[in-house]
């Protein structure tokens, strides 16, 4: 019986290269982890074999029609990365993070998976834009 974290993935196509530990999915990809669900046209899953000889997720790289469902938030961007060692999800390029009360827009938004903290970065070409609903407005 496995005590690992279970992820499920659906797609139209898959190519696995066991030597470099990469699995490339494309065509209506749905990647489901215990804490978030990711939709995209393309997704590369990188995994390594750890000292115990078990597969360890290292990184996700998704692009084209990226949509992230994380708690009550929805994220959109051109590209998404997930780094397992830092447990961070990075929405990169036209990034937006929306929930029922606010919306963030920036070139890059980084989410710390365990806590849900979001770190929003602007750059020379685009500033950060935050829209939120003020309680007093009710």
């Amino acid at each position: 019986q496995s005590n690992g974290v279970v992820y499920t993935i659906e797609s139209n196509h898959l190519e696995i290269n066991a030597h470099i530990g990469e699995s490339r999915f494309w065509g209506s990809v749905v990647f489901e982890s215990p804490s978030y669900v990711l939709h995209a046209d393309s997704l590369v899953v990188s995994a390594v074999q750890n000292a115990a000889g078990r597969q360890e997720l290292q990184r996700l790289h998704a692009w084209d029609n990226v949509e992230l469902y994380y708690g009550d938030k929805r994220g959109f961007s051109d590209t998404l990365y997930y780094y397992h060692d830092r447990q961070t999800i990075v929405l990169e390029g036209n990034a937006r993070l929306i929930d029922s009360r606010s919306s963030l827009a920036a070139p890059r938004i980084t989410i710390h998976e365990p806590t849900g903290e979001a770190f929003v970065e602007g750059d020379e070409s685009e500033r950060v834009k935050v829209i939120f609903e003020d309680d007093r407005a009710d």
């Binding site: 993935i9 898959l14 078990r54």
Partner: peptide, 19 residues
């Protein structure tokens, strides 16, 4: 050789990775 695989159509995978 090299260990490679391709699959098409209704792909459904379940992976268990170390936490």
């Amino acid at each position: 050789e090299p260990a490679r695989m391709r699959a098409d159509g209704n792909i459904r995978g379940k992976w268990s990775f170390d936490p």
